[in-house]
Design a protein around this nucleic acid. Structure first.
Length: 505
RNA sequence: GGCCCGUUCGUCUAGGGGUUAGGACAUCAGAUUUUCAUUCUGGCAACAGGGGUUCGAUUCCCCUACGGGCUACCA
């Protein structure tokens, strides 16, 4: 049990679609916060003006909302630590950066981009650090007068951290355990950019402090810059309230190697983003799990099991169970290759388990798009009949459209070769019988069908498929008699007639 | 290249000094379903390699290999 109030944050930069890795970070943050009665904060890290993308922030909020992982504080809901956009907190950062300069833990650097580039070309493995910083143009190498004059002339400059020599920075990561770095190999990262904006390094530390973050969850790709952050927490005098570090394993490409990216999804044919993302510049739409037909419960469940398990053989978890059972200690250290087949399985399982009434809104949405109006009771019966065969909610139309619209095309190829007049006569007769029969229960329809086949001297087996094709159009769908039952007497008879005509042509 | 992190079936993983190394997805075979899907049964399939430590290592330690991440005035 954490000893202080749990406050966690998800801190994305609004640069585009929200991918699986990001969503999983959201989930773990959320689960941990809920489990410990803590707060979950959304903080937008929009310090890079060049990469800012219009609409990306709202999109992130929408994705969180779709999954039911809503933050307690954030730019859209406010909170006691507002503002929650770093671009709106710009003034904070300069203050702390200047403080570090005064303390001697940071310095002004006036090197231009070209100068840095040249230096990097000149010296292999160049690092702006203890070994080379005196060769550069900064407040360490220049005289005070020079620095003052450059500053007063408003010469563009950055503030860099002064990483100490010959120290070992060690800390404990809740997933990885003891991690340590030699400061001689850490470079003097830029803290405040020439445009006055902080870099990620300064901004996370300052805001995590100001927002009283207790546990910092982030991807493993941040591990190498952790020593810079540790140093900052120390120099700013906040070490006592530094959050616990939780570096999450990466989600990898299913084939080959490397971090999963949007490109992999495009290439391999599966979504990587939670929801459809439309690039405002190119207008290009990248498919999301939601629009493909994933249930949010399934998506969340799948995400949770990507790098975590509860140690039992249970794989299907509700959000409530996840909140109860999640533990950082059980998150695995190694990166996980994303397996879309398994993701589909989760969705299928959730569709099967979800009661018809809860599935109805999703399906009603699909019907609305198709311009079909039906009564709820009818729709529910249709859902009950096909839900076991859906992988995506969106499969519903393909699997059940015949309940609402009579087939336009018939799979005649599987009927015609074995067709004969006897069968035509049988179905004519069958239609008559159906018109006058008392009961329209599936079981009675079946009994009727079979006895009629017998009196006509035909094998039931040879009539089932034609009957199905007349009702459905093809070789798919639930049991024929269940279909006939739901379709109703009249519709069944008229479909037989229509089917007969199609076969006759 | 340097630094950091990692390594159990094809994939996600459980396990942990002595186990027939378990499950799930995928795959294969069979049963059921007079369509398909579902369901059921069964099969295939893993401790990266080498040194230690130990009576005994997949498990602990070291090395190597391999994989990944980082190495920007991007996050």
């Amino acid at each position: 049990m954490p000893s202080r109030k749990v406050r966690v944050r998800f801190a994305p930069s609004p640069t585009g679609g929200l991918h699986l890795g990001g969503m999983r970070t959201v989930l773990f943050n959320y689960l941990f916060a809920r489990q410990n009665g803590g707060d979950f904060i959304l903080r937008i890290e929009d310090t890079d003006q060049a990469r800012f993308v219009e609409g990306a922030e709202q999109y992130i909020i929408d994705c969180l909302n779709w999954c039911g992982l809503n933050p307690d504080e954030g730019p859209h809901v406010g909170g006691p630590f507002a503002p929650y956009r770093q671009s709106e907190r710009k003034e904070n950062y300069r203050k702390y950066a200047e403080q570090l300069v005064k303390q001697g833990n940071a310095y002004y650097a006036f090197d231009t981009t070209e100068e840095l580039e040249n230096k990097r070309k000149e010296i292999p493995n160049f690092q702006y650090g203890h070994a080379h910083r005196m060769e550069m143009r900064n407040s360490l190498s220049l005289s005070d007068d020079e620095v003052q004059s450059l500053l007063s002339q408003n010469v563009p400059h950055v503030i860099r951290i002064k990483v100490p020599e010959d120290e070992t920075i060690a800390f404990t990561d809740m997933i990885r355990g003891a991690v340590s770095f030699d400061t001689n190999l850490v470079d003097d990262k830029v803290l405040l950019k020439a445009d006055g904006m902080p870099t990620y390094h300064l901004a996370v530390v300052v805001d995590d402090y100001l927002m009283q973050i207790s546990h910092a969850f982030r991807g493993e790709e941040w591990l190498p810059s952790a020593p810079v952050h540790l140093l900052l927490w120390e120099y700013l005098g906040w070490k006592a309230v530094m959050p616990e570090w939780v570096h999450l394993p990466l989600i990898l490409k299913p084939d080959g190697n490397g971090k999963l990216s949007k490109r992999d999804g495009d290439r391999l044919g599966f979504p990587v983003f939670a929801m459809d993302w439309k690039d405002p510049k190119s207008g290009e739409i990248t498919k999301g799990f939601k629009e493909l037909g994933f249930l949010p419960e399934a998506f969340v469940n799948m995400l949770a099991l990507l790098g975590w398990n509860d140690g039992t053989e249970q794989e299907i978890f509700t959000i409530a169970e996840l909140i109860e059972k999640f533990s950082i200690e059980r998150v695995s250290k190694a990166g996980a290759k994303f397996d879309f087949e398994k993701a589909k399985w989760f969705n299928q399982e959730w569709i099967k388990r979800k009661p018809v009434s809860e599935l109805e809104p999703f399906v009603a949405d699909i019907l609305k798009q198709k311009g079909v109006e039906v009564e709820s009771s009818f729709l529910q019966k249709a859902i009950a009949l096909v839900k076991e065969r859906l992988v995506y909610v969106n499969d519903f139309w393909q699997q059940a459209s015949f309940f609402f619209v009579s087939p336009e095309q018939y799979d005649l190829g599987s009927v015609k070769p074995k067709w004969n007049d006897q069968k035509t006569e049988f179905f004519h007769l069958m239609g008559e019988v159906f018109k006058s029969t008392a009961s329209w229960e599936a079981i009675d329809i079946e009994l009727l069908f079979k006895s009629q086949a017998e009196t006509s001297g035909l094998k039931v087996g040879e009539l089932m498929l034609p009957f199905r094709i007349m009702l459905v159009g093809g070789k798919f769908g639930p049991h024929v008699f269940d279909i006939a039952h739901l379709l109703g007497r009249q519709e069944t008879v008229s479909r037989i007639e229509r089917g007969l005509n199609a076969i006759a042509e």
